[in-house]
Amino acid sequence: MATLDELWEGDLREVTVGAEVVMLAHLPGGELRAYQGECPHSRFPLATGDLDGDVLTCAGHGWEFDLRTGQGVNPDNCRLQPFPIRVVGEQISVSGVRP
C-alpha cells in the first residue's frame, strides 16, 4: 500500500484499495488514519486538501474535518467514512472493507 517512508508526519496520500478510493493521513504526533478519499461535499480528492494540525480543509470548497475522529468541523453535520489500518514494520496497509 504505502510505507512510512512515503508518508511523513503531516502528509496526506490517496490510495486505491479494491474498488475504494482511500485517503491516508499521517497526523502530527505520529498517528495514522484512513478515510474515504472523496469529499462528502462534491467528491473532490481529500488528499489534495490542506492539513493544519488535525484539521483537514478540502481544496474544493473549504469544508473542514477533524482527521483524528473523522468528524466534520465545518459543517459539523457530516463525518468521513473510516477504514481499518494496520502497520507492520514500515508497511502500512488498509482494508477496503467498510467497518
Binding site: H61, G62, W63, N74, P75, D76, N77
Partner: peptide
C-alpha cells in the same frame, strides 16, 4: 446554515 464563514474569511477567500 451548515457551512459557516465569517465576513473576514469571506473577503479573504
Amino acid at each position: 446554515e451548515p457551512y459557516k464563514v465569517s465576513y473576514r474569511e469571506y473577503v479573504h477567500n
